[in-house]
Amino acid sequence: MDTDVQNFAVAHLRRRPRATEIGGFVAGFDPATSSPYINYATPLPGARPGERDIAALVEAFRERGLKPRLEFAPDAAPAVAPALRRAGFTTEAVHAYLICTPTTLTPRAALLVETPSTDQDYASIDAALSEAFGNGFPPSAEGAARLRRTQENGGAVRFVRAPDGSCAGAASCSAPAVATSELAGVGTRPAHRSHGIAAAVTASLAETMFARGARSVWLEYSGEGSRRVYERVGFHPAGTRLYMSLED
């Protein structure tokens, strides 16, 4: 499964407004933001980069004023992490990921899960996710627009509405590539947790992607509590992803 996830990462970055291929890497750049979580690179499966390849990749980030950063499944390109470490890159994090397939999905229909349709919906989702993740990123017009682009460009955004009409919790799924799709940004506002919202939006998104022909949906999780939520929906452990960056 690591190769499928890594092939997805490559295809996903090639969708960026400014995608660049350098010495066995694909770097995806979006001029609308300097976020390192959007502007990053990933290796082609099986890549064996040399010093010049990595130096060229670093230069592509530096000339844009961005931190050189990569996300990838290390088992799909075993030579990459050692080569990056020799060039001074360090590990930010190692995240396990889970996979769901049509045969393992367990639908959760207890809550009404909606598809956003108005600017107010997208803004409310962006604000709710900001709150859900501890206000690590502020709500913004660009954040709401990015969610709309996900929905309109083959991906999906789903949310559960709070009693006051705002967003209680939401998540999104990227458009499928190489028959798989990444589900990300599952977040519930603190006041609405423990009501099954994360499970409901996760199951709804996976079901949507399978209806569009994806053979699997994968996601990363942040703790044992969230892992148990995803496993109840039908996700199971499948591998790890490595995050590496180069400091100034």
Score class of each variant (00 low, 15 high):
Met1Pro: 13
Met1Thr: 14
Asp2Met: 12
Ala9Phe: 12
Ala9Asn: 14
Ala9Glu: 13
Val26Arg: 00
Pro31His: 07
Pro31Lys: 07
Ala32Trp: 11
Pro36Gly: 12
Pro36Ser: 12
Thr42Pro: 01
Ala47Ser: 13
Ala47Lys: 10
Glu51Val: 15
Ala55Glu: 15
Leu57Arg: 08
Glu59Phe: 12
Arg62Gly: 01
Glu63Tyr: 00
Glu63Trp: 06
Gly65Ile: 05
Arg69Glu: 05
Asp75Trp: 09
Ala83Ile: 10
Leu84Cys: 03
Leu84Glu: 01
Arg86Tyr: 07
Ala87Tyr: 00
Gly88Thr: 08
Phe89His: 04
Thr90Arg: 13
Thr91Ala: 11
Glu92Cys: 05
His95Ala: 11
His95Pro: 00
Tyr97Pro: 08
Cys100Lys: 02
Pro102Ile: 05
Thr103Gln: 15
Thr104Ile: 08
Thr106His: 15
Ala109Phe: 12
Ala110Pro: 08
Leu112Asn: 14
Leu112Thr: 15
Gln120Glu: 14
Tyr122Thr: 02
Ala123Glu: 07
Ile125Ser: 01
Ile125Val: 14
Ala127Ile: 11
Ala127Gln: 04
Ala127Arg: 04
Leu129Asn: 06
Ser130His: 08
Phe133Asn: 05
Pro139Phe: 10
Ser140Lys: 03
Ala141Lys: 09
Ala141Asp: 13
Ala144Asp: 01
Arg148Ser: 07
Glu152Asp: 15
Gly154Phe: 10
Gly154Tyr: 07
Val160Ser: 03
Asp164Thr: 09
Gly165Cys: 05
Ser166Asp: 09
Ala168Tyr: 02
Gly169Tyr: 01
Ala171Lys: 00
Cys173Pro: 00
Cys173Arg: 00
Cys173His: 01
Ala175Tyr: 07
Pro176Cys: 08
Val178His: 15
Thr180Trp: 01
Thr180Arg: 04
Ser181Ala: 15
Glu182Leu: 14
Ala184Pro: 00
Ala184Met: 05
Gly187Met: 03
Pro190Cys: 06
Gly196Ile: 08
Gly196Gln: 11
Ile197Tyr: 07
Ile197Pro: 09
Ala198Gly: 15
Ala200Glu: 03
Val201Ser: 01
Glu207Asp: 12
Arg215His: 13
Tyr221Pro: 00
Arg227Cys: 07
Arg228Thr: 15
Tyr230Leu: 01
Gly234Ala: 06
Phe235Cys: 02
His236Ile: 06
Thr240Cys: 10
Arg241Ala: 13
Leu242Ser: 06
Tyr243Asp: 05
Ser245Lys: 05
Ser245Cys: 07
